[in-house]
Lab assay of single mutants.
Amino acid sequence: IEKFKLLAEKVEEIVAKNARAEIDYSDAPDEFRDPLMDTLMTDPVRLPSGTVMDRSIILRHLLNSPTDPFNRQMLTESMLEPVPELKEQIQAWMREKQSSDH
């Protein structure tokens, strides 16, 4: 029984630690959010139409349809242009958020 109590305490400790580690990014500025999924972008790319999306989301879309989801023009992965300035701004915002939450 004592071992179970210790195990339960350890589990509670881990759960509390994980809860502290989770950071809420739901208040991200609109320009940091993917327009299709409304999630925080981690690897922004510009489509030929000028729309900026997260790379993982547009690549997932391209698996089903080789088109720009906003104007239905033909689109391939090679046409995606990285946006390193925005990526750095997002990373800086995330770092600031992490340091203010801890």
Rank of each mutant, 00 (worst) to 15 (best):
D27E: 12
D24G: 10
E81L: 03
N64E: 07
A92H: 13
K10M: 15
T42F: 12
V52F: 05
I90F: 02
E81W: 02
P82K: 00
S56T: 05
S99N: 10
E22L: 14
D43E: 13
N64D: 04
Y25H: 08
K3M: 06
I57V: 12
L6R: 15
V11W: 05
S65L: 01
D24E: 14
E85A: 08
T76A: 05
I58S: 01
Q91K: 10
D54N: 04
K10I: 04
W93G: 01
G50S: 05
F32S: 00
E13A: 12
K10R: 12
A21E: 13
A21T: 09
P84A: 13
P66C: 06
I23S: 09
I14T: 08
Q91Y: 09
L36Q: 00
R60Q: 04
N18H: 09
L62V: 02
T42N: 15
K17N: 12
S99T: 13
E88G: 15
R46I: 07
E9A: 15
P82R: 05
Q98E: 14
P48H: 01
T39P: 00
T76R: 05
S26A: 11
W93F: 14
K97M: 15
P35V: 08
L63A: 14
M74T: 13
P66F: 03
R20P: 12
S78D: 10
N71S: 05
I57F: 14
L86R: 06
L63H: 11
Q91E: 14
D27F: 14
A19T: 12
F4D: 06
R20M: 05
D24L: 02
Y25S: 14
E2M: 11
L59Q: 09
M41I: 07
D101Y: 06
P82E: 06
M94I: 13
M41T: 00
D24A: 07
K5I: 06
S100R: 09
R55C: 01
I23T: 13
E13V: 06
P35L: 05
E31V: 09
P48Q: 07
K3I: 02
E2K: 10
L36A: 01
M53T: 15
P44A: 00
D101Q: 12
E2D: 14
S65Y: 05
F70I: 01
T39I: 07
A16P: 08
S49Y: 15
T39G: 01
I23R: 10
S78K: 10
E2G: 08
N64C: 02
F4L: 13
L36E: 04
S65G: 03
E9N: 02
A92R: 03
P84Q: 07
V15A: 11
A8P: 10
E13D: 12
S65A: 04
K3Q: 04
P69F: 00
T51I: 15
L86V: 04
I90A: 05
S78C: 10
E31K: 07
L63P: 03
E77R: 08
T42P: 04
R33G: 00
L62Q: 00
A28D: 09
R33K: 12
R95E: 08
P35T: 01
P29T: 06
R60W: 00
Q91H: 10
T76S: 08
R95I: 09
K17E: 13
T67C: 05
K3R: 06
P66G: 07
E22N: 13
T51N: 11
L7F: 14
E31A: 10
V45A: 02
L80R: 00
K97N: 15
P82V: 01
E9Y: 15
R95N: 05
R20L: 14
F4Y: 08
L63V: 11
R95M: 04
A92I: 01
L7V: 06
P66A: 11
M53R: 00
P35Y: 03
K5N: 08
M37F: 00
M37T: 07
S65N: 02
K17V: 15
R20G: 10
R33E: 00
A92D: 13
E85S: 04
D30E: 12
P66S: 08
N64Y: 15
D27A: 05
E96G: 11
T67R: 01
S65T: 03
D27Y: 07
S78V: 02
D101E: 09
A19M: 14
Q98H: 12
A21P: 11
E77T: 07
Q73E: 04
L7H: 09
F70L: 00
E31Q: 10
N64T: 04
L7Y: 10
S78Y: 05
I14N: 12
V83L: 13
D43Y: 03
I90N: 00
R72F: 06
P44T: 00
E77Q: 05
I23K: 14
Q89H: 07
P82L: 01
S99H: 06
M79S: 01
M74F: 02
S49T: 09
V83R: 03
E77D: 07
M41V: 02
R46K: 15
D101I: 05
E12W: 02
A21S: 10
P35R: 00
W93Q: 05
L6F: 11
F4M: 05
N18D: 14
K10E: 12
A19R: 14
T42V: 05
R33I: 04
L7S: 09
